[in-house]
Amino acid sequence: MNLPNVAPNWPAAIALLVLSLQFPAAHAGKTLDQIRQRGQLVCGVSTGVIGFSAADSQGRWNGLDVDVCRAIAAAVLNDANKVKYVPLNAQQRFTALQSGEVDLLSRNTTWTLTRDASLGLHFTAVTYYDGQGFLVPKKLKLGSARQLKNAEICVQSGTTTEKNLSDYFKAQGIKIKPVVFEKFEASIKAFFSGRCQAYTTDASALAFIRSKEAPKPDDYVVLPELISKEPLGPVVRRGDDEWFAIVKWVIFALIEAEEYGVTQANLEQMKAGSDPAIQRLLGSAEDSGKLLGLEREWAARAVKAVGNYGELFQRNVGSASPLKLPRGLNALWNKGGLMYAPPIR
């Protein structure tokens, strides 16, 4: 038997295969050039955390993390709407950033040593200081997390939360039983059906869960303890220092704008003002953009698009939002909080 008519195609097919394998890996240029070239910033966000990043029924994204993306798009592309949002779950987020699927991960992600040092990432700056707390039904009459002995606690996997939970109760010498769920929806459902005596996650999310997800918000209370530090902020890939600097400084510019009282509304007046620090920030005196590889008005554009940090906070999670979170640690440094931007000069 022989191999008629098909046999001669074998070597050709294999040659083709080998050729296609040697196709040069489309090598990443600098992130900034890529973004300019495609005219779009690709931003990794959560699959839905109200106040931080959530899509409405029309598919429009909003929230604090989303506004950070918009501010960066405004600074880089002069258009806050040129952003593509890629919703990522907790497991996908780091690989998506590592692989270059997204330029920036702005997805309430906690800054930790392991993540900063071993995942090939850089945390840029903190956009929200959070801490982990507990939500419990009022009828259990609990005043402190230390009373949760032998309690079952619902928690979503894929977060720093699980580790904090175990650390905290270990330090207290208290035994608890975590019930770990893969998905946020499932964990919420289980807690409100009474499967667990407590629910734990970042305090900002607890406020939202209590007000929006609870059948009757008044039946639930948030316990006073915060058991961890959760500094949340955008993350970039390693290996592109220029892009790292841009993301960092756009966030600092938003904070600095609040400090100097520059708002979305008074921006144009402020540009014409006489304060040299504001002049520098808004690009009317010297060109700070040049140093970052951006245009002169980069910071002004960012503020114009989303407002200063204070406005952004109030609109998404603060008093003007359904979450009504207090500024707390997220107030400016000179108002008792931790928000402090290095000087733009």
């Binding site: 590592q98 995942l119 090939g120 175990s166 039983k177």
Partner: peptide, 25 residues
């Protein structure tokens, strides 16, 4: 190459580290 360039650690050394999380049952 991807992993080296991005400073991603690899290997199974983490298996010996403390888990750090609790298991419900």
């Amino acid at each position: 190459g991807n992993m080296a360039e991005r400073g991603i650690r690899s290997g199974f050394d983490f298996l010996r580290d403390p888990a750090g999380f609790a298991i419900g049952e």
